[in-house]
Structures are given as C-alpha cells and as structure tokens.
Simulated assay, not measured.
Amino acid sequence: MRLAFEDADIAEPDAGAGLAPLLSAKLWNNPCWLSFRVNFAAAAFNRHVYPGIERRHALKRQEVMVIYSLRLRDGLSASEIVQSSAFPKNTISRAIQVLIGRKLIRRATDASDRRSFVLRLTPAGERIVDEAIPPMVEREHEMLSALSPAEQHMLHALLTKMIVASPTWRESCEPEEKPA
C-alpha cells in the first residue's frame, strides 16, 4: 500500500539504511501516516522527559501536565485542564487531588464566579516546573534539529491549524446510527 501522495524531498531509504523494517513500513506504507508520526514523536519526547521528573519529584505524567498547564496559565479550572489534555476527567481529578495533598497546587475561589474554583500553583509547584522545562526544551530542540528554521515554522503553523480545527472533529470513528 502506498500513501496517497509522493514526497519528493523524503524518499524511502534502502533496506540497509538503519531503520527497522516495521518502522520503515509505518513510515512509507501506512494509510494512517499522520497519527503514526505524531504519536511516534510524542512518545520519543515523553520517554525522554517524564521518567526523570518522576524519579526526582515522584510525579506521574498527568500530574506534571497539570502543574505545567498552570505554569503556562495560572488560575485554570479542572475542566479547562481536561479540555487541553489527552487525559480523561477522572485521571485529571486524581492528579489534582495528589497535587493539592502535596501542596504543589491550591484550590482558590474564582474571582469572576464565587461559586467556582480555580487552581493555582504554589511556589513549590513552580520550582518543579521551572526545573523540568529546560530538559523539555532541549529534547524538543534535538527533535526539531532535522528541520530548517523555515520547516520548523511550517510544522508549527500546520499543526496549530489542525488543533484549532479540532472542535469540528467527530467524537467517534464509529458510523453514526440512523434512527429506526
């Protein structure tokens, strides 16, 4: 099976080029080329970054994701964190409870809606994220080093465009049932 397009800049390497046969097949003979590439890159990033944070701070990936989110934009609701993550609501809820218990985040009344709560980083939580960011940035730079600055910009723009369109994506791959 061939992809629906041909990439003139990236030709399939010879069998002896150093890629494992299945990796080569997933790159050049895969009808789901985008999901493979995005998942492979994300896994290569995650495998490199999160084990060190877990070792140093005894935090799971979803807990790191919560404090990282709050470092980017403090004062978020749990729902906002769920919406921007790949984790289900119950996983984020458990992570939040762990982080509150460890005093890495705190729950505060939302100033705009006194009936709601927002999450805020504590100084201890800020220190962990600030320590974690440099190795994350280093890994990302390493991964992007195969691309020119113009290609990096293009990748950024294209992935951003896809993510901005994500609210229009179907929730399920299952065919919609027709009313009887």
Rank of each mutant, 00 (worst) to 15 (best):
M1N: 12
E6M: 12
D7E: 09
A8T: 10
A8G: 04
D9P: 01
E12L: 10
D14W: 00
A15M: 05
G18I: 05
L19P: 05
S24R: 15
S24P: 02
S24I: 05
K26Y: 11
K26R: 12
N30G: 10
N30T: 06
P31Q: 14
C32W: 14
C32V: 14
W33G: 15
L34N: 04
S35K: 00
R37I: 10
V38M: 08
N39P: 07
N39V: 14
F40V: 09
A41Y: 07
A42Q: 03
A42T: 09
A43T: 15
A43C: 12
R47Y: 12
H48E: 09
V49C: 08
V49N: 07
P51T: 05
R55Q: 15
R55P: 04
R56E: 15
L59K: 05
L59D: 06
Q62A: 08
E63I: 05
V64D: 08
V66M: 06
Y68N: 03
S69E: 04
R71S: 10
R71V: 00
R71P: 06
D74L: 01
G75D: 07
L76P: 00
S77K: 08
S79C: 06
I81M: 03
V82Q: 08
S85P: 12
A86I: 12
P88Q: 12
P88M: 06
K89G: 01
R94W: 09
A95T: 01
I96H: 05
Q97E: 15
Q97T: 13
V98Y: 03
L99R: 01
G101Y: 13
R102L: 02
R102F: 01
L104A: 09
I105T: 10
I105N: 02
R106I: 01
R107P: 00
A108M: 12
T109C: 04
A111M: 01
S112N: 03
D113N: 15
R114L: 14
S116T: 10
R120D: 04
P123S: 09
P123L: 07
A124Y: 07
A124W: 01
R127E: 10
R127S: 08
R127P: 00
D130H: 07
D130Q: 11
A132Q: 11
P134Q: 13
P134I: 13
P135E: 06
V137Q: 13
A146D: 10
L147M: 11
S148C: 02
E151S: 15
E151K: 15
H153K: 13
M154Q: 12
M154Y: 09
L155Y: 10
L155I: 09
H156Q: 15
H156F: 14
A157W: 00
K161W: 10
M162D: 11
M162Q: 11
I163P: 02
V164M: 01
A165D: 07
P167H: 04
T168L: 07
W169L: 14
E171Y: 04
S172F: 07
C173A: 14
C173I: 14
E174A: 15
P175C: 11
P175E: 11
E176W: 09
E177S: 15
P179C: 13
A180I: 06
